[in-house]
Design a binder for these strands. Structure first.
Length: 294
DNA sequence: CACCCGTGGGA
DNA sequence: TTCCCAAGGGT
């Protein structure tokens, strides 16, 4: 063992084991192995903060209806928000629609392969740009999501959880852990390991292919002294209120009278504030007759 | 950088 | 039942 978090031999073994494990244990997912960058982009937006199981049915319906960026761009953004259903964070649907418009207008209808071009798309941040470039185009990028961060924190740093915010030091570590060859497979494999084995709660270390290389496991899986996060209040928040309003608007194909929205939330002041914010966000439209729609 | 932005299922 | 948290992004 060297002073650094992992020496070259450790990393070689880590790569080899995780890739071999991935070969045998990778889930079959509809956005994998399809040679369709649009499908990859759609899946990545849907998977932002939303579990795979809930994304699956929405993804299938979405791709059947909008098989290309141009097909989505040709429909109103409100239809995208409606089709998003209850995946949560409906602005992601709005941004995916905006991305489809940008791809249609500026990239000839083809999802760009360039990382910088991807990053410029609405709803695409550092993680998603790297993920699409990696998974859809086989490029070499550090794909640093919550799963990979947790795997690296445990295996290389011996920490139960990654830090609250992503530091430059952590990014350097991930860059150092990225293999020269098969980087895109490492990205997918390390993410999958974090999702299926090296989970946030109740990690399955007995099934882990790299338990004997893991600093956290070697240290006896120590838990941090203080909880890494403070639980956030939910009941009564603007987010809950906005969610109620959006749910009503999704259910109705046409427009919704104000009284239908008023029935969703008792506190009129908060309700009006939230409705205003939804209008500001462009998620809701108000019509001349005073009715509302997506 | 801290905070805001939905939703529902599992422990 | 309460609480955690899931392939983040934008401001």
């Amino acid at each position: 063992m060297s002073d650094s978090p992992a020496n070259g031999a450790d990393l070689d073994a880590l790569h080899e084991r995780v890739l071999a494990w991935f070969e045998e244990n990778a889930r079959v997912l509809p956005w994998r192995g399809v040679d369709d960058p649009w499908a990859v982009l759609v899946s990545e937006l849907m998977l932002q903060q939303t579990p795979v199981a809930r994304v699956l049915p929405v993804f299938e319906a979405w791709m059947a209806r909008w098989p290309t960026p141009a097909s989505l761009a040709a429909d109103p953004a409100g239809e995208a928000v409606r089709a998003w259903g209850r995946l949560g964070y409906p602005r992601r649907a709005q941004r995916l629609h905006a991305a489809a418009v940008a791809i249609t207008e500026h990239h000839g209808g083809e999802v760009p392969s360039d990382h910088a071009a991807l990053l410029a798309l609405p709803g695409v941040g550092e993680y998603t740009a790297a993920a699409v470039a990696s998974f859809a185009f086989g490029q070499r990028h550090v794909v640093l999501d919550t799963n990979v961060r947790r795997v690296l924190a445990r295996v290389l740093l011996g920490q139960a959880h990654p830090a609250r915010s992503l530091t430059a030091s952590e990014r350097r570590l991930a860059d150092r852990a990225l293999p020269r060859a098969d980087a895109h497979r490492w990205a997918a494999a390390s993410m999958e390991l974090g999702a299926l084995v090296c989970t946030a709660r109740s990690p399955r270390c007995t099934e882990c292919p790299v338990a004997d290389l893991c600093r956290w496991f070697a240290a006896g899986r120590p838990e941090p002294d203080e909880p890494v996060r403070r639980s956030q209040a939910w009941t009564g928040t603007d987010r809950q209120c906005r969610g109620r309003l959006m749910a009503v608007l999704r259910e109705h194909e046409g427009t919704v009278p104000k009284v239908a929205l008023d029935a969703t939330w008792d506190d009129a002041t908060q309700r009006e504030r939230c409705l205003d914010s939804l209008l500001d966000d462009g998620l809701v439209t108000v019509h001349p007759d005073g009715t509302f729609s997506l």
